[in-house]
């Protein structure tokens, strides 16, 4: 209704310079308007970001600092003692992230290429396939993880039915220390790849078509065209995909928890083979109630993620064209 903004013969454009209202009022108005947002963030982002470091130095009691016992850097010393299992959780996380990021990028790029519109308009098939690939991304991870638990059931699941049909040996999947994490990966690839597809679809539509055609004219084959013409145009998005993919993978919790026996001791089984740092942090604080120790894990996670993001940015800026 309000869309009909009266387009009167407008006066020469007025630059919003000094407002007639006195400056002091607009200062207080500005602050008053940003205050609600800042208040929410202060309570559950800024304060916790400081608090996490403080808590990590205490044998924390929920009652507060007064009831907690100062232990200094003791928790950090524990972290790097192999017995605590923290270093192992970093290894599991590195394996998980190291597989998920390249796989989801490769699959995402391939699928984006497949559903990219060839003509000026999207066909019904392209739209449908895009929707099918995207849909899992917005579904709640617990509901879909339960379906994947059925799929990976060693006796009656779909995964082993497929393997048997291909004359391959059936696997123990979630009951196996070797295959539990790959099972989680398959679930999350399916769940999250739609996001990568959307990223790459936007990037592919920015590749100038005449340059690609010129390459074809000059006799370049598909692989050469992709590597020398299309890939450089994708590199800014590729950097974004690596960073976002890494952040997402490092924080994965729900699907791992649910698929690896979360309701029976916090997940991460069998034998800690799927205990990523996110699971490890959760268990430290909310299964064993070592809040201070868990906070120390949080600090390390914080630093690692910051370091990864900065490093990727550094490397990316050196190898990224067409910003």
């Amino acid at each position: 209704m309000v869309e009909t903004v009266p387009s009167q013969p407008s006066p020469p454009p007025v630059v919003r310079g000094p407002q007639p209202s006195p400056r002091r009022r607009s200062v207080s108005l500005g602050w008053a308007l940003v205050l609600p947002a800042l208040a929410f963030l202060a309570l559950f982002t800024y304060l916790p970001a400081v608090l996490v470091a403080a808590i990590s130095l205490f044998q924390w009691n929920l009652a507060g600092f007064g009831a907690s016992q100062w232990v200094g850097l003791h928790h950090y010393a524990q972290l790097f003692n192999p017995i605590s299992g923290f270093l192992q959780s970093l290894t599991v996380t590195a394996y998980y992230v190291g597989m998920m990021v390249p796989l989801s990028i490769a699959l995402g790029l391939g699928l984006a290429w497949l559903v990219k519109n060839r003509g000026p308009r999207l066909t019904a098939w392209e739209t449908f396939t895009r929707s099918a690939v995207f849909l899992p991304y917005i579904t709640p991870a617990i509901a879909t993880s339960i379906i994947w638990i059925f799929i990976f059931n060693p006796q009656f699941g779909l995964a082993n039915a497929v393997l048997t049909a291909l004359h391959l040996p059936a696997l123990g999947w979630l009951t196996s220390t070797t295959w539990a994490l790959p099972a989680v990966m398959i679930n999350n690839l399916w769940h999250n790849v739609g996001f990568m597809v959307i990223l790459f679809l936007a990037a592919l539509s920015n590749v100038p078509q005449d340059v690609v055609e010129a390459a074809w004219m000059d006799g370049a084959n598909g692989a050469v065209t992709f590597w020398h013409i299309i890939r450089p145009h994708l590199s800014p998005v590729m950097l974004l995909a690596v960073i976002l993919g890494t952040i997402q993978a490092m924080q994965t919790f729900g699907s791992i928890y649910q698929m690896t026996g979360g309701q029976f001791g916090g997940g991460g089984g069998p034998l800690n083979s799927t205990t990523t740092t996110a699971i490890y942090l959760y268990k430290s604080a909310f299964v064993y109630f070592h809040y201070g120790y868990g906070a120390a894990v949080g600090v390390v996670l914080f630093l690692v993620m910051l370091g990864v993001a900065l490093a990727q940015k550094q490397i990316g800026e050196r190898h990224t064209f067409y910003r």
């Binding site: 982002t45 996490v52 924080q251 906070a295 996670l301 993620m305």
Partner: peptide, 19 residues
């Protein structure tokens, strides 16, 4: 505000619980 985007939610889980 931009700085808030740099804070990974997973890392501040415990202080959030404390708050």
């Amino acid at each position: 505000l931009l700085a808030a985007l740099m804070v990974p939610p997973e890392a501040i889980l415990i202080p959030n619980y404390v708050v």
